[in-house]
Design a protein around this nucleic acid. Structure first.
Length: 677
DNA sequence: GAGCACTGC
């Protein structure tokens, strides 16, 4: 990917910028939300609609509510319902795709109600439950409500369920659509406390929601909106990075320095390279040009550096924020006047032929384009440069493909089975996943011993039911549940926790030699799983702190998260009466146990020194980040395959071929037969 | 001898 750009003087580059073409868009207003007393609540645009809205909602059991961010719908509707006594026999639930949103909304609404957070108004997210018997308005993550549904598919404690940010189509929200729809019908049939469902969305593409909920009426809310000018390029851009650079410096030379720029790029590496180029160019700008403060923004950036984007730049200095799609939804930055949209995003793609997931740079959808554009007009009118032509934009997909159609469904299928859905393959999804993908997931659950077929019906085995209790991929729940047999539950809990957060190993490329020297003491010849275990044990032995993490190139943030996860998994073990023992130095037992969950991810060394997978005889290689990179064990298991230049195995464990066979004799007998034919 | 976007239970 070409990313030069420092060689030409910016003045010349600016002339390359495409002549703009105009279009108009109405955008949502700002995010500044000071604690609002009653008068401020009344000044929200939604207040005008309160009466008609309530009289409609009173008579409906489901409704779709469309309103831009900033219309106040998420904070006000639950209060209106509560104040009007709608749904007063139960709890009003409001789901959010993100934890921070659930927490901050609950905080805000409890302030508006002048009550202590966790009383009348509360929230429930993973690791944190600030709700009580008194709670009547509860904000939760969509994943959390789904988890509650496993315990009670009718969601009986809720009288109203509001699924907010429905347009984002997270996998959890998509499953909830079906769960909530079924609960609504069943509660009606059984004559129980009626359930009301409200779908809230920002897009205008509402037919799908309305149709799915049996023609639920659609209510529209106005927002406070600022106009945004949109400029498309005149010609198609083959090099979006170059085009972005040109646009940034053109804006920089023309616009007042108080107006900040937000650029959407695809990933960490690209953003870091572009940051450097921008800083280099900015050093050599002519006199009289404002200063430029270039700030990268992506999720793996340490929080302290992420926070910098919220600080105002000094007078005479412009902020240029180079961001991934984290700034589309998760992070909202005040004061952005210009958005530069490359039209590209890095996202997971599922290729049905190979059945594999690939992370690739690709075109955004129209909906994503509008979302990015909207980031320019949150407080005042704004300007958006789209680095593609209007004709190209017209060819973008209308919506981003819902997550549920793009990923492995093993966890989803296990959850649906735990919800006692009669036939999971015909579950009433709003957007059905490919039948192949669903069957592959069932096949995986079958291999793990989680499902059984009874009179042509799929049901969970007792093992499968226990597996569903863990917030994990099924293969990892299985290892935990099997670990008592090998007396290594403590160790398996640690390994699974470390694997279910982003890497705890910090590898700054510029300090590679130092990293290698320090890491030596943790390395296990048995593979990456046991190496991770060694790091964790060392951390615990010295009652690890931030300092220790820094010295040992361990990511403190991720380590802390892993500790939370571990505590949660341990709790679940205790509730399920799983005995928690330590294998101490018996690492062979740990690897045997891991083999029971990773047997379908096994590879064998070939006579020519390459590896092929046992499952599909695909050529694979050991990823250079593995501690086994320079080794050639005869047989390994791996956590995942990573498709880049080659097909790499990541997170490897040395195993005996016999152990694999013991873990799934039927599976390997089938493989053997297939090989013979 | 390579390189992981973003969430969430």
């Amino acid at each position: 990917m070409p990313r030069d750009g420092s060689s030409l003087p910016p003045a010349k580059r600016a002339k390359l910028a495409p002549p703009p073409r105009r279009a108009m868009l109405l955008a949502p207003p700002g995010t500044k939300r000071p604690p609002a007393p009653e008068s401020q609540r009344r000044s929200l645009p939604i207040f005008q609609a309160r009466g008609p809205l309530l009289s409609q909602l009173r008579s409906l059991d489901s409704a779709v509510l469309i309103g831009e961010t900033g219309s106040g719908k998420t904070t006000q509707i639950p209060q209106y319902l509560y104040e009007a006594g709608i749904g007063c026999q139960g709890i009003i639930a409001v789901t959010q795709p993100r934890r921070v949103a659930a927490i901050s909304l609950a905080t805000r609404v409890s302030e508006e109600k002048k009550t202590e957070l966790g009383k009348l108004v509360g929230y429930t997210v993973r690791f944190e439950d600030l709700s009580s018997e008194e709670t009547r308005i509860k904000f939760l993550t969509d994943g959390m409500l789904l988890r509650e549904a496993i315990g009670d598919p009718l969601l009986r404690k809720y009288s109203v369920i509001i699924l907010d940010e429905a347009h984002e189509r997270t996998i959890h929200t998509d499953v909830l659509f079906g769960v909530v729809k079924a609960a609504l019908r069943k509660r009606k049939d059984l004559g129980k406390l009626p359930l009301r469902v409200i779908i809230m969305s920002a897009t205008m593409d509402v037919d799908q929601f309305s149709q799915y909920f049996n023609g639920a009426p659609v209510l529209y809310l106005e927002g406070r909106q600022h106009p945004i000018q949109i400029f498309y390029t005149k010609q198609s851009q083959s090099d979006y990075l170059h085009a972005a650079l040109v646009s940034v410096f053109q804006i920089h030379q023309e616009a007042p320095s108080s107006q900040d720029i937000l650029v959407f790029l695809t990933g960490q590496e690209e953003i870091e390279a572009m940051s450097k180029t921008c800083r280099d160019i900015a050093k050599h700008l002519p006199d009289g040009c404002p200063h430029m403060l270039v700030m990268p923004l992506y999720a793996s950036l340490p929080y302290s550096q992420q926070l910098r984007v919220f600080q105002a730049a000094p007078t005479g200095c412009r902020k240029v924020i180079l961001s991934t799609n984290i700034a589309e939804t998760s992070v909202t930055i005040a004061g952005i006047k210009y958005v530069v949209d490359t039209g590209m995003v890095k996202a997971k793609k599922y290729s049905p032929e190979s059945g594999l997931e690939v992370l690739a740079v690709q075109r955004i959808s129209k909906a994503q384009g509008w979302q990015r554009t909207g980031r320019a007009g949150r407080e005042d009118s704004g300007i958006c440069y789209r680095l593609y032509t209007e004709e190209e934009f017209e060819k973008f997909d209308k919506m981003t493909i819902p997550e549920i159609q793009r990923c492995n469904l093993a966890s989803v299928m296990l959850q649906l089975l735990a919800l006692r859905i009669p036939n999971v393959l015909t579950f009433d999804f709003m957007s059905k996943p490919a039948p192949d993908a669903m069957e592959a997931a069932i096949e995986q659950l079958d291999l793990l011993g989680a499902v059984d077929r009874k009179e042509n019906q799929l049901i969970l085995t007792p093992l499968g039911r226990k597996m569903a209790a863990f917030p994990l991929e099924p293969k990892f729940s299985k290892t935990i549940l099997l670990s008592p047999k090998y007396h290594c539950t403590e160790e398996i809990l640690t390994i699974v926790s470390l694997l279910s957060v982003d890497s705890i190993l910090y590898n700054p490329p510029s300090r590679r030699d130092e990293v290698q020297a320090v890491r030596k003491k943790f390395i296990s010849s048995e593979g990456d799983h046991l190496t991770l275990l060694n790091v964790y044990r060392a951390f615990r032995n010295v009652s690890g702190n931030k300092e220790w993490c820094k010295e040992n190139f361990v990511n403190n943030r991720n380590m802390m998260l892993a500790l939370d996860v571990r505590a949660q998994l341990r709790d679940i073990c205790l509730k399920l009466s799983v005995p928690v023992e330590s294998a101490r130095s018996e690492t062979g037992n740990i690897r045997r146990c891991l083999a029971h969950s990773l047997f379908m991810n096994a590879a064998e060394l070939q006579p020519d020194g390459t590896y092929t997978t046992v499952d599909s005889h695909q050529l694979v290689a050991i990823h250079p980040s593995s501690v086994l990179f320079h080794c050639k064990p005869a047989c390994v298991t791996y956590n995942e395959l990573l498709h880049t230049n080659k097909c790499y195995m990541r997170d490897l464990c040395v195993v005996d071929a016999d152990w694999l066979y013991d873990a799934a004799p039927d599976y390997f007998r089938r493989k053997l037969r297939a090989a013979k034919n």
